[in-house]
């Protein structure tokens, strides 16, 4: 079946099997491999992307369910070569090691800050309850989210996607 969605500001129309998961569509059809798949059970959150302003686990959404939606992945966060405040904070606070959870963790963190611009340590942890990391012990991820919060509302937003980017 045909599916159309806006991914990182770019309109994409593709032919997919009905069972194609959004995560595989992003990775295999659109070549956006920052979004990783770490489990089968909607547990790990590595595949978290933002669909219409809300974080979702793209391994548990059919590509067809994103018809007409705006999808943002890690690759769509930087603007004009400038990192998103959450990306920058993950770097400065050493919030990533192997990097496999990072894409989902960054997207989920933006979701946390969209919901609560000034979270406490505990609120960050609760906001990230759906994202697993084996390397960092979460300590520096929490620090990164708290640091990103200092950047103000931009930390809880994704770049607006009016611009149509050519393929």
């Amino acid at each position: 079946m045909q599916v159309s969605m806006t991914v990182n500001g770019q309109q994409r129309t593709d032919e997919v099997e009905p069972r194609m998961l959004l995560a595989h569509h992003l990775r295999d059809n659109l070549g956006l491999t920052a979004t990783n798949i770490g489990c089968d059970s909607t547990s790990c959150g590595a595949c978290t992307v933002i669909v219409d302003g809300l974080t979702v686990k793209s391994c548990t959404v059919l590509a067809l369910q994103a018809e007409g939606s705006e999808v943002t992945t890690l690759e769509g966060l930087s603007t004009d070569g400038e990192m998103h405040p959450v990306q920058a904070a993950f770097r400065s606070e050493h919030g990533l090691q192997c990097g496999f959870c990072t894409s989902g963790m960054v997207m989920a963190s933006i979701g946390v800050l969209a919901d609560n611009p000034n979270p406490t340590d505990r609120e960050v942890r609760e906001g990230l309850e759906g994202n697993l990391c084996r390397c960092t012990g979460y300590h520096n991820i929490v620090q990164a989210v708290l640091k990103a919060a200092e950047a103000g509302p931009a930390a809880g937003q994704v770049p607006s996607s009016q611009q149509e980017v050519s393929a």
Binding site: T42, G45, T48, L54, T55, V56, K57, T60, V61, A108, G111, V112, D115, G127, E129, G130, N131
Partner: peptide, 9 residues
């Protein structure tokens, strides 16, 4: 219920 991503869907 679950986590934020689950609650969003």
């Amino acid at each position: 219920v679950g986590d934020p991503q689950v609650r969003h869907r």
